[in-house]
Design a protein around this nucleic acid. Sequence first.
DNA 1: GTCTATACGCGGATAGAC
DNA 2: GTCTATCCGCGTATAGAC
Lengths: 189, 189
Amino acid sequence: MNDSPRRKELTRQAAQLFVQEGFDRTTVRMLAQEMGIKSGSLFHHFRDKQEILAAVIEEGTENALGIARAALDDCDSDPASRLHAMARAHLETLLTDRNAHVVALYEWRRLDAPARAHLSHLRDAYEALWEEVIDDALAAGLIRGDRFLVSRFVMGALNWTVRWYDPDGERTPDELAGELVAMLTHPAG
Amino acid sequence: MNDSPRRKELTRQAAQLFVQEGFDRTTVRMLAQEMGIKSGSLFHHFRDKQEILAAVIEEGTENALGIARAALDDCDSDPASRLHAMARAHLETLLTDRNAHVVALYEWRRLDAPARAHLSHLRDAYEALWEEVIDDALAAGLIRGDRFLVSRFVMGALNWTVRWYDPDGERTPDELAGELVAMLTHPAG
DNA sequence: GTCTATACGCGGATAGAC
DNA sequence: GTCTATCCGCGTATAGAC
């Protein structure tokens, strides 16, 4: 439809509900209430419920991509630092920010075909960033295994944290990233 | 309600639909059609839709637990073999069997409080088995890291395979398990 | 154990006034 | 840009016959 600041704000509020309840269980009435408007008004901003989901996922992936790129630019250029930075960025968008990126990962299947086609290049760009970092770590002998599989396993380990991580617990996303890298790293390498 | 063979069979069919569509999007009419009966008849076997989910998750976790125990009994007693056997068993119940165990992992949140209370001991037993195997591998110096976190990361890596694994592709669950163990294992250890 | 028929509330979405 | 009012189909569940 457009990308007014108003719509951006509504998208953020939708993301929160989608994480809490799941897309299917979130009703347009719930969304409207969270946004402080009536359900009829919602359709002035979004064509239908599907479009809200697409907006959230686009926002979440773009955000994750931007944060990951910034983290890689900021850190040292050795493979270990880059791997740690990437993992930390990923976990922060999932666990601290706790909204749009989670939706992007967990509700992707709920997108209809056109939205999926439109957004898959974004998702691919984010995953390509990951594969780059993994590749460097493999080439340096920091970790070992198959390029494709290591990427999937690492992303899986990180994505699943959403299910068990306690934000009020002792560990920060940064510490988690450190533990993951330590687990994967071969001291002898 | 009970656990007649009839009900077991219906539960298996429900599992398949829950994986394909997700619990929320699966209607009782769809379930009935898959089972070859009318929707009204469904409620002779299950009190409500929630009870179907609980039955599927119970079945899926019990099955995974049984297969994992059998795999551990059958394999060599060194930590590497045990880790591999556990990973392979886990992946087989997720990727080959492709039903009830997936539901147990991905639809757990949809259980109501009483069902969750009733089933959590089962889930805990399965996770305890994992922690045992991880503990042994840590003690042997095969892998390294924090007991709790390694377990979560490993299970996350495996659970996420459901999202990208192609059953018609080249790799078997056994090969995947091997790759995971290789990734985690320190040759120098 | 399965059927038909049906109740009934809820969810997505629209129309048109302000 | 938001409201009120409303449509209508669908989803869960029940009743009672066979």
